[in-house]
Each structure stands twice: as structure tokens, then as C-alpha cells.
């Protein structure tokens, strides 16, 4: 392995950015490909697939055998609002393999009694997210439907290109939210990325059912990363 490739790979992994180490098993040469780098041909198609699935493996391309070692950051979920939905969402997401953090400045809601074994911040999203910025391997679900709490976090999630951005509230509530986010400087393309009303349309009624719908929608967004851009280009 090329020492420079190892250093680059570790730097990407520390920064929570996806990278694939591509090794030619014939001659041992290797290089790092970052998510979004253009690689042509069969090898490029295999690399794109590995970025989506996170699965490593060998691939035959251009008459050679390459090993693709995919290093994806651990995806996680940030929930704005320590509400009833979040109480169901936190354990479900953890079981599905998405560590959860909950942010809610209302200390009556954000209690460890209501949220055992969950990373909980009884602070404003502005304060938590300036310490721990969001990134493209983080999903954000805003479920307080209080503009004072949700809006900043939603704008931050759009700017950080979170792989999923969902916001609780009716279409009417969302229309007002869109106006506020536009006033905060969000673009129309960014607004279009918000899933609102939140969650897959499975007719969810109870808080726990809404949590299922939100988690399923976040997983769908994660596993189809990059596909929208490809469809648009096609």
C-alpha cells in the first residue's frame, strides 16, 4: 500500500468523508477515490455502486482485477425535539444501525428519564451544532414544529448536505416554514430536499408508527444517495 494513500484514507475517515481504496491486485498499485470523483468505465460503475452500498469486494474491469475497499462513515440520525415520536424513534434507529442524538432546549422534554441510553442535549440546536457540525452522513429529523427550535437546524442540515432532512408538520405548516427558510437564505433546490410532511406515506397514526415512517424514509434516502443526481443527468 502506498503510504500517501494510507495517510489520505485515514484523513478522510477522520473527517467522516467516504473514500474507497482501489487496489490493482495484479501489480499492487493503489489509489484513493473520494465520493463524487469521476471514474470512467466499468471500474467507475463498480466504484459508484460500492459508495452506495458500502460493500467492499473484487471487481473485474478493463481486463484487470481490482479490490475496492469501501470506507463509509457511520451514518447517524440527529433528532430535533425530545417529543413522543423521538422516544420511539431513538431505540428503533439504534437497532437499525443508526446512532441517534436528540437536541431540545426544553428541559422538561429533554430528560434522561424520558430518554434512557440516548445521547441527549438539553440545549439550543445553534449551540450543539456549532460544536458538532452536521455532515452528509447525518440525517436530521425536526419534530418539534416550533420554528424557534426547528428552523435553524433545518437550514444547517440543508447547508451541510445531510443525506436526509425531514420536518414534521402539515402541508400548511410547511408552506409557512418554506417562507421562513427562504428568508434565511435557503435556495429552492435546498427546500425541495426537505421531506415534509415527514415520513413515508404508510398511514402512520401513533407516535411510534410515525417513527417507523421517518426511519424508513431516512434509510431509503441513505441507500439511494447519489441516484437523484444520476437520474437528473440521464
Amino acid at each position: 500500500m502506498d503510504p500517501y494513500a494510507l495517510k489520505t484514507l485515514n484523513a478522510e475517515r477522520r473527517a467522516r468523508r467516504a473514500a474507497i481504496l482501489v487496489t490493482d491486485l495484479g501489480d499492487g498499485r493503489d489509489r484513493i477515490v473520494r465520493e463524487g470523483d469521476q471514474v470512467a468505465g466499468e471500474l467507475g460503475a463498480a466504484i459508484a455502486k460500492a459508495f452506495r452500498s458500502g460493500n467492499s469486494g473484487s471487481v473485474e474491469a478493463e481486463g484487470r482485477t481490482f479490490f475496492l475497499n469501501a470506507h463509509l462513515p457511520q451514518p447517524c440520525l440527529v433528532v430535533i425535539g425530545a417529543v413522543h415520536i423521538s422516544q420511539a424513534l431513538a431505540p428503533m434507529a439504534k437497532i437499525a444501525g443508526y446512532p441517534v442524538e436528540i437536541i431540545d432546549p426544553r428541559t422538561a422534554f429533554a430528560t434522561s428519564d424520558r430518554f434512557p441510553n440516548v445521547a441527549l442535549h438539553a440545549e439550543w440546536p445553534e449551540d450543539v451544532l456549532s460544536r458538532q457540525p452536521l455532515d452528509s452522513y447525518t440525517a436530521l429529523a425536526a419534530v418539534t414544529h416550533d420554528p424557534k427550535i426547528d428552523d435553524f437546524a433545518l437550514k444547517a442540515a440543508l447547508d451541510a448536505n445531510c443525506f436526509y432532512v425531514g420536518a414534521l408538520g402539515s402541508r400548511k405548516t410547511h408552506a409557512k416554514r418554506v417562507e421562513r427558510l427562504l428568508a434565511l437564505g435557503a435556495t429552492a433546490d435546498q427546500i425541495a430536499r426537505i421531506h415534509a410532511p415527514i415520513g413515508l406515506d404508510i398511514g402512520a397514526a401513533s407516535p411510534a408508527e410515525i417513527a417507523v415512517a421517518v426511519l424508513a424514509q431516512a434509510i431509503q434516502a441513505f441507500r439511494s444517495r447519489g441516484l437523484e443526481a444520476k437520474d437528473a443527468a440521464a
Partner: peptide, 17 residues
């Protein structure tokens, strides 16, 4: 589920290498 969002640097083979 022992998944943290950060690397476990003390045990990560590539970091150690």
C-alpha cells in the same frame, strides 16, 4: 449496537499502521 460515529483510534488497524 456498538456503533459510534467516530473512529476508535486506539484500536483502528489503519490508524495504528
Amino acid at each position: 449496537m456498538e456503533n459510534s460515529i467516530y473512529l476508535d483510534e486506539a484500536r483502528d488497524p489503519l490508524i495504528i499502521a
